[in-house]
Nucleic acid binder design. Structure first.
Lengths: 200, 200
DNA sequence: TCACAATAGTGCAGTCAGTGCAAAGTTGCA
DNA sequence: TGCAACTTTGCACTGACTGCACTATTGTGA
């Protein structure tokens, strides 16, 4: 995730600290359960003071689910970069498949552990949703731009929301079946593209 | 929990208390902002002790957004009651339209005020999502039963999630435009049914 | 190389959310 | 009327989260 070449020591350390806190949070929660882990525990595991924890994350839940501030802009760029002759759904589909592939390649284990943690603690679902919601905003903008509609029109709003739904369903199934996430996501988009017609 | 006709004084009082707390929460938060209202304030406005507040709601946010435990089962029943020759999407569509009409008729003002509060406090979006998520479970079950698929198949999961997406989009647009919620919801379902094809 | 500016980390004190427990008050019922 | 069931409440406690002032570390320009 190294954006530009020259990144000072300061920024590298910040990144490290954030990562350490996030990983510690996921590991400890997976191990002991959400409410048997305190912010103090997480901070200790990451070797920083509890006060510092809150300089990085607004809450314990945020540390576990690590809102990815780059995801929205990335998706936006991906959608706009898809060939112009693709339909909007197809563009979103391809963008999402590419994004997922990239993210998974990056840190597959962390993802899986997070999914398991969420399954064991449905309270965290709220964070998952609202995290996706942030990405959705950028997705709405990208779709609106592609199809030449205002960003408050039903079409872009709905396409973005439906894509989010497809994503969540695919990830949910992924964590309980052996199928590759790519296939599950593609299946979901096929159903959407077919107007959710009754299955045979 | 006497649901049948004769409802004792005890249950009536509980219902009243819950309602008083919920309404006080919405009113106070709309008036002073989410984090300038404490549980103590809400309890005082509803004339109960702060401790009692937590006998009814697990958190301040819950009091504002009032999770409706009956919504899931109601939707399930509605979906299964739709004519058998309707497609699954159509059945969900009709069920949702009917549910919304019934709920709006019941307490239109509270709904609108809640929407406004949510717009002013995006933190609450998380609760909206996870509230919808509870309903989604029942919806998944109903759809699975209708189409004769297991409840962990992609189709029912996705249809329920997409319906939730359509609902959220419709409500969001409703609170910013003058159009009736019914029409906005119908429009969203039309787009879903058309496979989210590019608009003209 | 050395000061000085920026910024990250920390300790402290305080507010408020949320929970378990046991006592007190209410309601249902025989 | 009296007992059982249930609701409300006060109390004490843990832990999340914040503002503030201070220290430590890193970046930078003379």
């Amino acid at each position: 995730m190294t954006t530009e070449g020259a990144e000072g020591l300061r920024d590298r350390k910040k990144r490290q600290t954030r990562k350490a806190l996030g990983h510690a949070a996921v590991r400890l929660v997976a191990e002991h359960g959400l409410d048997h882990v305190t912010v103090e525990d997480i901070s200790a595991a990451a070797d920083v003071s509890p006060r510092t924890f809150f300089n990085y994350f607004a809450s314990k839940e945020d540390a576990v689910l690590g809102p990815d501030p780059g995801a929205g802009p990335r998706m936006r760029a991906r959608v706009l970069a898809e060939p112009a002759d693709l339909s909007a759904v197809a563009a979103v589909r391809e963008a999402l498949l590419a994004e997922v592939a990239a993210e998974l390649a990056d840190d597959r284990d962390l993802w899986l552990r997070r999914m398991r943690v969420v399954q064991q603690h449905p309270v965290l679902l709220a964070k998952v949703f609202s995290g996706g919601e942030a990405v959705e905003r950028d997705l709405v903008a990208a779709v609106a731009e592609r199809v030449g509609l205002p960003a408050d029109d039903t079409y872009p709003l709905l396409l973005a929301a439906a894509a989010g739904a497809a994503f969540r369903v695919a990830v949910a199934r992924w964590s309980t079946t052996a199928a590759p996430l790519h296939d599950l996501l593609a299946e979901a988009f096929d159903l959407l593209g077919a107007g959710l017609a009754d299955p045979p």
